[in-house]
């Protein structure tokens, strides 16, 4: 999966968590939770979705590395390859 495909996949998962938002419109450095209005419950559901759909278990200590699309893509890119 290349970076663009990964981005599309992530946006799809975010859309499931926050259906009323437009994750495709996120800029690379936007704080995902702030822009999409995701609370801690939804944030955990997103971490669960990453585990179930991409096979990446993000430990709590790494949550901060998933705050923007750029950080998340970098993090997942390392974990998947």
């Amino acid at each position: 999966m290349n970076r663009e495909e990964l981005r599309t996949k992530i946006c799809g998962l975010l859309k499931q968590i926050a259906p009323d938002t437009e994750p495709e419109a996120l800029k690379d450095n936007d704080k995902i939770r702030d822009v999409l209005g995701i609370d801690s419950f939804d944030a955990l559901q997103f971490i669960v979705a990453l585990d179930e759909h991409l096979g990446v278990d993000v430990p709590e200590k790494d949550y901060a590395k998933t705050d923007t699309l750029e950080h998340l893509l970098n993090y997942l890119g390392e974990k998947i390859h």
Binding site: S40, F41, L44, I47, V48, L50, D51, E52, D57, V58, E60
Partner: peptide, 10 residues
Amino acid sequence: RSPKDRLLPV
């Protein structure tokens, strides 16, 4: 725990 079994502070 796996992500789906994690607890939130709440």
